[in-house]
Each structure stands twice: as C-alpha cells, then as structure tokens.
Design a binder for these strands. Structure first.
Lengths: 253, 253
DNA sequence: CGCAACTTTGACCAGATTCAAAGTAAGTGG
DNA sequence: CCACTTACTTTGAATCTGGTCAAAGTTGCG
C-alpha cells in the first residue's frame, strides 16, 4: 500500500479520436459531436504507479476520472483498520463520480498496476448535463451498472460460502478484464494478492488461502506471476451459481 | 411474501404542488418549471398492500417509481432460495431506475407496508434528460447515493461482527425513516421481521434472534407491534462504529 | 545475500449455522 | 367467541465454517 502521490504526467495525451477503448467491441462508439465534446471536457491525463492512491476517502475536491489502462480498486477502511474492498476498476470505468455528484468521496481508490487515467473537471459535470444529455445518460448508465455490480457483491458476501464467493469473484474479475480488453490470452494475470481477495470477500487471509487452494487443486485457477490466472471461468461461475449477465456495447466517457 | 398484484388505484392522485415530501426539510424543493415538468412526467399513482411485489427480477418493462409513502425493500434470490436483501426504500426513494437505464431489472422489490408510489414512464426518461438537465442530475444524484449506501452495507456485511452489523442496520433504518418523515416520535416502528434482518445481514435467523436479544437487553431497541422500535440510535451507531454522513437537502423526483 | 512482501500449513478456538422444539401473537372460519 | 392455523419469535444443543495464533516456506528485489 504505497502512498505515492499520483504523478501528473506532463507527457503524452491520447486524443479521444484515437482512444484505445473505442476500438473494442465491448464499448459504444461516440459520434463526432460527442467525441469533440468529451475531448474538450478532458483536462489532462494522469499516470500513476502501482500502489498509488488515486482518490482519498473524505476528499471534497476529487476529480472525475476514466480509467484508460490498468487495474484499480475502491475500498473503505474502518477506524480500527478493517478494510473492505468494494469493487474493482478496469479500463472504461469511471472513478470519482460520487464526489462529482454529491460533493464528497466516501471511499478511496488505489492502483493495482500502473494506470493511465483521463482527467475531467468535476465542476463541469453540470455543464455536461446541460449540453450533452446523451452523455449525461451514459454517466447515469455507468452509475446504474456499478449499482448492479454492488448488488451482486452483496448477494455474494451475504449468502455464498467462502468457496462460492471466491469462485464468483475470480469469474467476475476475469470477465471484466476480458471485456475491457486488459486481459488477453497472452496477458491474463489479474494483479491481486490473496489479501485483496480476503478483503473483498470478507474473509480472513488464512481462510482465503485455504479456499483458493481448493480452486487451484481443481485446476480452475493458478496463482503466481504477481496475481491470479483464471483457467476456467465458466466452471467458476457455475460453482458460484452466478449467471453472468450478457452485456451489449456499453457506454463510457 | 404475498404475491399480490399491485392494485392500480383509479382513485386519488396527488399533484406535485401538494406533494407531501416537498414539505419536509429533508428534501429539496422544486422550482415551478421543474414541478410542472415532473407533474407531466408522472403518469399515475400506484397503491399496494403489504407483501406486494412491485418489481420482479428479470422484468424488462418495469416502470420507474418514486415512493410516496410506506416501506419497501430490494432483494435478490438465488436459485436454491437463498435471499439477500440489498436495501430498503422509504419515501422519496426512486425504484426501478436500473430497468429504465440498462433495460432490465436485476432485483425484485417488495412492500413492507401499504405503499403509495408515483408512476413514471420509463420510455420518457430520455426525454427528461434532454429537457431537464437539472432533473437528470438529480436522478444521477440519487443513483450515486444508492451506490454510497451499498458501499456501506458491503463494509458492514464484509467486516463487522453480527452484533455490530445489527446495530448498524437498525441505526441506518431508523435514520432513513426519520429523515424521510415516515418515522415520528409517535409512529416509530420499522415494519420488518427478524427474517428480514437476517436476510439483510447475511446471518441465519437463529443467530439474528440471539444477536437482537443483546440489543434488547441493553434497551437500545424494542421488538414487537409488527416490527422494531429504535430507542437509542446514537448508541447503535456507536456500537457499529458508523459515522452517519450528514445529509443536506436531498433531491427527489 | 538478506530483507520485505506474500503464500502456505497446522493447531486450536469462536462465532455462526443447523436441527429441533416450544412459546406467542394475530387472523380465520365455524 | 373459541378452536385452529399460520407466521413469527425464542431457546437449547450439537456441529461446522471460518477466525486467530504461530511459524515456516517462497519469491522478488536492492
């Protein structure tokens, strides 16, 4: 948990016309008008290292970000140090919306890998709602989707056994990674530690280890090379009793 | 879990100018323009009994509702019957947004008491985004708030002990009830059973009962009269280590 | 090489589940 | 109005999942 300050990279800036996300089947394409607007809405790019804290719980001045590349996670910490990971972010995900809308962030975000983020000014979100109702709708779509994911996590933590939970989480992460383009048949390692898994599932690290061992023994996952490799996503989903909702082209900003 | 069909009440219709919610300090007031628009957006009112299912998991044609009076809850059920309650709804809350935005509901909603709901056409949400960016922003605000609540629930189920969880939930419900005007010093019963508490906290009903007993013994809550009466909300919040975020005037539709 | 972070394993303990059954309260039909 | 049913609450006992404690093994890196 390095507490690195994000580096504001003066360096390159991807313009939206060449946004790598737009090329993927999974994402909706902008029309020219929208693209121009988003291009203007974007104020810069942020590059961070693994372990950097992008957003801090309690912040009032957080920016709004779209993750362009890398893995991150959202979490909350209690006063006595107990940590709960709420969700993970992959390319295309929006970070910091809560702060832009309600004024204050109530969770933190940390990088699991080097990240590239598009930076938007939170003060201009109102303007976006006025000028581009279609983009405003997309933002709401993204918020509704996050809510749906949290619903699923809640079901998982509340009602599934440790074994089912672990299977669900890894199927979920693998799927997200695949669709967002960050996992490929070559690079298919989800960069998490067992501590992350434990803090996501609400389990102790020891029990998490023993649970993951069972999945390894069944050759459904492999551990190492800095993370987890999912070997049989479908089998994992089946163990969890999780029906992956199929997703058409999703919007992003 | 009565599977009652919601009764479409041909009866009375509250016009927005006299909306009971607008009178409460907790809610933002509309300006005239917004009020007229929402008035037109509203297609009717729905009255249901306790136990009625308002929204069914998997529905594609769900309406969008604002809860005007009563208590309800959102939940998911696994194939084998395990149920997880995701959140509760009190007056001012929006129900069915997920369906309006992403096209399909992924959870159900059931009434805990007789309800009155404002009904909106889901097809006209796009129109609302185009014509009233301020109202669109409000909807997004509400979605972001729901997300924040789910984050808190996740922390609770994942990292708090049974005792802390129960304390958190009841403090949370009491607070929501108070602010929304549905709980008063006279009518202060939260209409839930211990089964609801169990399904919210991810506990068995037996252990839930034993846990609630401790809270009763400490005279922090009372059970009976069709639900739970919170006697000392602050003490409950303290047990849970929960800092209630203060909320200014919140929007509703 | 040696440290630091992470993973693995074993032994013991505790919180929570399951099973079983009885007590209570409210509602229904005779 | 009472007997009966149904839904909900309460309690005890046995069991088990998952937590805690302790320590060793691994891996990557300066």
């Amino acid at each position: 948990m390095k507490d690195g300050q994000p580096n504001t990279a003066g360096a390159g800036r991807t313009d939206c016309a060449h946004c790598p996300l737009g090329k993927l089947d999974h994402f909706r394409r902008f029309d020219d008008d929208e693209q121009d607007y988003v291009e203007g809405f974007k104020t810069g790019e942020l590059i961070t290292e693994t372990g950097a804290t992008i957003i801090v719980d309690g912040a009032h001045n957080a920016h709004l970000y779209t993750l362009l590349s890398g893995w991150a996670f959202r979490y909350k910490i209690m006063e006595d140090g107990r940590r709960q990971i709420l969700n993970y972010a992959v390319p295309g995900d929006l970070l910091g919306l809560q702060g832009s809308i309600t004024g204050e962030m109530q969770h933190s975000v940390e990088a699991l890998s080097p990240l590239t983020l598009c930076v938007f000014e939170r003060d201009r979100v109102n303007e976006l709602f006025s000028n581009h109702p279609d983009l405003a709708f997309d933002i709401t779509w993204i918020a509704a989707r996050e809510e749906r994911i949290l619903d699923e996590h809640l079901l998982s933590i509340g009602r599934r056994s440790a074994y089912e939970r672990a299977a669900y989480l890894l199927a979920f992460l693998n799927r997200r990674g695949r669709l967002s383009g960050i996992l490929t048949s070559k690079h298919n390692v989800i960069p998490i530690t067992q501590q992350h898994v434990a803090d996501t599932l609400g389990l102790s690290i020891v029990h998490t280890n023993k649970t993951l061992k069972k999945l390894k023994d069944r050759k459904l996952i492999a551990w190492g090379d800095g993370g987890c490799r999912v070997i049989d996503e479908n089998q994992l989903a089946e163990i969890a009793g999780w029906e992956e909702t199929e997703e058409k082209r999703r919007p992003f900003i």
